[in-house]
Nucleic acid binder design. Sequence first.
DNA 1: GTGAAAGCGCTAACAG
DNA 2: CTGTTAGCGCTTTCAC
Lengths: 344, 344
Amino acid sequence: MKKVSIGTIAERLKVSKTLVSLVLNDKGDQFGISKKTQEAVRKLAEQLDYQPSRMARGLRTGRSKIIGLIVADIANPFYSRIARSIENIAERSGYHLMVCSSDEIPERELQLIRLLKDSQGADGIILSTTQDSAAPLLPLRKAGYPLVLIDRDLPKMDKGCVLVDNRKGAYDAVSLLMKSGQRRTAMLTIGPSHLSSINERLEGYKDALKKFSVKFDKNLVKEIAFERIRDEVYQAMHELLSPAVDAQAIFTANNHLAVAAMEAVRRMGKRIPDDVALVSFDDVDLFRLSDPPVTAIAQPMQDIGEKAMELLLEMIEKPKNKAENKRIVLPTTLVLRESSLKKK
Amino acid sequence: MKKVSIGTIAERLKVSKTLVSLVLNDKGDQFGISKKTQEAVRKLAEQLDYQPSRMARGLRTGRSKIIGLIVADIANPFYSRIARSIENIAERSGYHLMVCSSDEIPERELQLIRLLKDSQGADGIILSTTQDSAAPLLPLRKAGYPLVLIDRDLPKMDKGCVLVDNRKGAYDAVSLLMKSGQRRTAMLTIGPSHLSSINERLEGYKDALKKFSVKFDKNLVKEIAFERIRDEVYQAMHELLSPAVDAQAIFTANNHLAVAAMEAVRRMGKRIPDDVALVSFDDVDLFRLSDPPVTAIAQPMQDIGEKAMELLLEMIEKPKNKAENKRIVLPTTLVLRESSLKKK
DNA sequence: GTGAAAGCGCTAACAG
DNA sequence: CTGTTAGCGCTTTCAC
């Protein structure tokens, strides 16, 4: 069971490696190689189950057909769903996915980029960045390296991004609560954070307040450290539901916060939505079946992956054509369930 | 911004490429290269942010430092959690993960294996197989190619697997229900299926029956086609809860079935656990917060990934040492929640 | 119509 | 202590 290479085929057929290469790359006709020879080559290749070595080819052509995906954590269903849809699109064009988790560590992310780009020779990277500035990424852009940002925006990276309208999504969520009379709507968010996604959601919250002429009350906004969500949310909910603050509804900036909030409310012996209503950003399976089902702002995960991969493919395949280097902002969807409806 | 290679460094330092290669691979001392030269090389490499080309290196050495992971669907949280823990272990030894979804299509799986092994030159593969026989995989084994099976077993593949004790897990689940008096416990499973994991769970169900001297009643076991879970489960639940069958409890072979069962029960206007108790294989986040929280058999996803990667590393790094080619069976954990407790 | 030869970046055997 | 050389498998001129 030795490796079957282009040479193996050439030898057996008493032709040159060049010819085999040409035929197998569908350049046979172009170079006017006889049908008969072509047929023979193809047949033998099939028979020997020949697979071209990507390494050798890559070394020669400078293209690896590998694309890198860097996210905070691939175990997060949000990212793994995106990964899957990227894979689907990538496959069609013969690309393969190399997946890495940055664990929200900026230096690690940069290290991974270098690894993927220089070491593995990835033809492009899709990145949910954890940087707080575009600076470390700009050189890549300048060099024309195919890079698509997803999920999280960065100032000065106006092109090559696939994002979601976080601000509008949050606005919708909070407006819903306001409309049904919950003027004292609190927000649970991650902080301190430089993440665009998180910050835009806060803006959306404020937009809704403005729309309904409700004054911003900083006691109603709680920033939670993402490493200690459970404890801090419990603490925060205690304060929010105390008579002093008396929040009527909660908007959580992501699904983890919502889960923690629900657990906290339960532990406090209160009920959603009667004691406090809840709407969360991110829609996850859990929200359909939880007690109560949670009203949520759904992100189009499949679309994000597909659009990102399509954009990356354009960048990879079109030569330096900056024209197509666009910025895509996808809409969110409000999924109405019971957690937002006070029975009154 | 051109590529910086070993040659760039050699040129600038007026030394040979060999020397640079040696130093950068920590073979400097071994070959007695002067500290001074070594220092200079390292410094320049650092300065130029030199990253060795894996393709070139791989071509030369025959090792890519890539490991392939093939699962049914990387968007499935069960698999993405495993992927993450594989990544953690792989990283320590400088390996990278290439992830592929087979979509439960056996031929696709084989195609992916060929791609990863021959084309990408992956040093090894971790596979949750969808084959119904070991035959297509045996040649790989024979050839000594590092391959670790996870999650799903295959007859004749007694080594190089990391599995979970499905039979015992199912036995525990059903015993729990029996103990609390639910002799008429039904099972919802996927079928027809050749998957070892699924079949072993059915065996575990039967074991529990035997233990409690309950006769097997085939009306209580429903095989669901996995592409049409929702509809078929609804239909099945209808039958199971009809007076004619009158199931008191349900054991579902995976989390998808449990979710569908809960939805069905809800649609039928009945309640878990009072009208029917429920225990599911697989523990997912959802079960903690669902209405009611679901008693489940948890699989050690992190362990599976870690053990699989460790085993694979052994296979890759130890030369043909078949001695260490083991079979690992991990225990499941019963997570007791409310869905299994009839208030009576 | 077809083949020879060079070279992608790296490592390893062999010389000095 | 350091350099020369060959070659991994492939693509791509250029030559016949």
